[in-house]
Amino acid sequence: MAAVSKRHLFFYLLFVAHTQEIQLILVNNCEESIWPGTLGSAGNTTPQEGGFHLGVGEEVVFEVPNGWSGRIWGRQGCCFDEQGKGTCESGDCSGQLHCRGGGGAPPATVVEMTFGTPRSPLHYYDVSSSV
Results as ranks from 00 to 15, higher is better:
82 E>P: 02
83 Q>H: 12
82 E>K: 01
117 T>N: 10
53 H>M: 02
29 N>V: 03
88 C>D: 09
25 I>Q: 13
107 P>I: 03
71 R>E: 15
79 C>F: 05
113 M>F: 15
86 G>Y: 00
119 R>T: 12
16 V>Q: 14
98 H>Q: 15
34 I>N: 01
117 T>Y: 06
98 H>S: 12
17 A>Y: 12
84 G>L: 07
43 G>E: 02
104 G>E: 08
63 E>V: 14
119 R>W: 08
9 L>Y: 03
32 E>R: 07
88 C>Y: 01
36 P>S: 06
33 S>G: 07
11 F>K: 01
86 G>D: 05
55 G>N: 11
3 A>Q: 08
63 E>Q: 15
126 D>A: 04
121 P>Y: 13
91 G>H: 01
76 Q>M: 15
115 F>P: 03
126 D>E: 13
58 E>G: 00
76 Q>Y: 04
9 L>C: 10
71 R>I: 09
123 H>L: 04
60 V>S: 07
68 W>D: 10
96 Q>I: 03
130 S>W: 04
19 T>Y: 07
67 G>C: 08
113 M>W: 01
67 G>S: 07
125 Y>N: 12
101 G>T: 09
55 G>Q: 12
117 T>I: 12
49 E>V: 03
95 G>L: 10
21 E>R: 14
19 T>I: 09
22 I>N: 07
111 V>I: 15
113 M>D: 03
22 I>C: 09
44 N>T: 06
125 Y>R: 07
14 L>N: 15
99 C>I: 09
63 E>M: 11
42 A>Q: 12
46 T>W: 00
48 Q>K: 14
68 W>V: 06
107 P>R: 07
31 E>P: 00
59 E>P: 00
10 F>L: 09
86 G>F: 01
4 V>C: 11
65 P>N: 13
95 G>K: 08
66 N>H: 13
126 D>K: 05
70 G>W: 03
126 D>C: 04
43 G>C: 09
60 V>P: 04
10 F>I: 07
80 F>M: 14
78 C>G: 14
91 G>L: 01
105 A>L: 12
124 Y>N: 10
10 F>E: 10
97 L>V: 04
10 F>R: 11
108 A>T: 12
43 G>V: 06
6 K>R: 13
118 P>W: 05
27 V>R: 03
40 G>P: 08
69 S>W: 00
90 S>M: 03
87 T>S: 15
33 S>Q: 12
94 S>T: 13
98 H>L: 03
30 C>L: 10
111 V>R: 02
16 V>H: 14
100 R>E: 15
28 N>M: 04
43 G>L: 11
104 G>T: 14
83 Q>S: 13
4 V>G: 02
130 S>F: 07
12 Y>R: 15
78 C>E: 09
111 V>F: 11
24 L>K: 02
64 V>Q: 09
51 G>E: 06
12 Y>V: 02
68 W>Q: 09
20 Q>M: 11
75 R>H: 08
122 L>F: 09
69 S>K: 14
96 Q>H: 11
82 E>T: 08
67 G>V: 08
61 V>R: 14
49 E>W: 04
38 T>M: 14
